[in-house]
């Protein structure tokens, strides 16, 4: 930076301020500057989050004293045995996965045409209005939206008054959750469409691809990472939910309900921790499967 002034006596080298000294020091010590940048975020995530997750894993191998309700720190597999052996857990796991998959599929099927319309059909003004229209419901409290659906699907509710209500239960849970998580899927999918240059679509047309062929062979592969990113939201939010299902699910239980019951009324953190490993495993498998699509960078 400052060597160039050697050849020209009229230009003085910039004064060696502390800021310059520091930046030339870090400029020549790449590893150190990386460490400085990463130290705070990594320390926060590892010290708070990863340690907490590992402690949860450890807790799952402990047990609860049935008399005092205190956690007893001797190693046992009984919590995992309880989770894997009981028919209730298996049924609830299957039901939760089924609901999570349905919600995700519904949201993606809605987000694709909507995102495409917003980015490629609508003009700038309409696009802006639609972005606002799809972001605004995020600010109506989650509980209020769930409760609004309860008034819609419950007996004597809006849908019942026209005779097509599914009633409280699995269907109502799927509809409600698709509704609540929809903005989380629409926004990344829209952003994904927005990143596809129109020139690529025109090139496909010039090369002879018909509309549908362009859509399936060019647009869908390009927008796929964003779809996966959105699906991570809807999938994981459904997998851990225990509140919406209480409001619209009738007596149906999800994995979240079981974990909540174990830790809350049951006061059995080890069993709750063991139960929690089902959604953790499912999400980790899902994340590993989709990592190669680059979806994690589109959340």
């Amino acid at each position: 930076m400052s060597q160039s002034s050697n050849t020209d006596s009229r230009i003085q080298p910039p004064p060696r301020t502390t800021g310059r000294r520091l930046s030339s020091f870090f400029g020549s010590h790449k590893r150190l500057s990386l460490t400085v940048l990463l130290a705070a975020p990594l320390a926060w995530l590892i010290l708070i989050y990863i340690i907490a997750l590992l402690l949860l894993l450890v807790t799952a191998f402990w047990s609860t004293d049935s008399f005092t309700g205190q956690v007893v720190q001797d190693w046992t597999l009984s919590n995992f045995q309880a989770v894997f052996a009981e028919a209730l857990y298996r049924a609830v796991t299957v039901r939760t996965l089924l609901i999570a998959v349905s919600v995700t599929v519904i949201d993606v099927l809605i987000a694709l045409p909507v995102g495409y319309f917003m980015s490629k059909v609508a003009g700038p003004r309409l696009r802006g209005a639609l972005v606002v229209a799809f972001l605004m419901p995020l600010w109506a409290a989650y509980l209020v939206k769930a409760y609004a659906w309860r008034t819609i699907v419950s007996p004597h509710g809006l849908l019942d008054s026209i005779g097509v209500s599914p009633g409280l239960g699995v269907i109502a849970t799927i509809i409600t959750m698709s509704y609540i998580w929809l903005p989380y899927v629409v926004m990344p999918v829209y952003a994904g469409f927005e990143r596809i240059p129109d020139s690529l679509i025109e090139a496909a047309g010039d090369l002879g691809a018909k509309g549908w062929k362009t859509f399936t062979a060019v647009i869908i592969p390009l927008v796929w990472p964003s779809v996966i990113a959105g699906s991570i939201f809807s999938f994981s939010l459904t997998l851990g939910d225990y509140i919406a299902v209480q409001i619209v699910g009738g007596s149906q239980q999800l994995l979240g309900t079981l974990i909540y019951a174990n830790v809350g009324t049951g006061g059995n953190m080890p069993l709750a921790a063991a139960t929690a490993f089902i959604p953790i495993a499912v999400i980790l498998i899902y994340l590993t499967a989709v990592r190669r699509t680059g979806a994690l960078k589109n959340l």
Binding site: P41, L45, Y49, D241
Partner: peptide, 26 residues
């Protein structure tokens, strides 16, 4: 590092909740 940053939102809230609750209190 990328996965580490994504994990707290990718894992369901109840997991983050009980993990942090357990770590903070017990």
């Amino acid at each position: 590092v990328n996965l580490l940053i994504v994990l707290p939102i990718a894992l369901p809230g109840i997991i983050t909740g009980i993990a942090l609750n357990n770590a903070f209190t017990t």
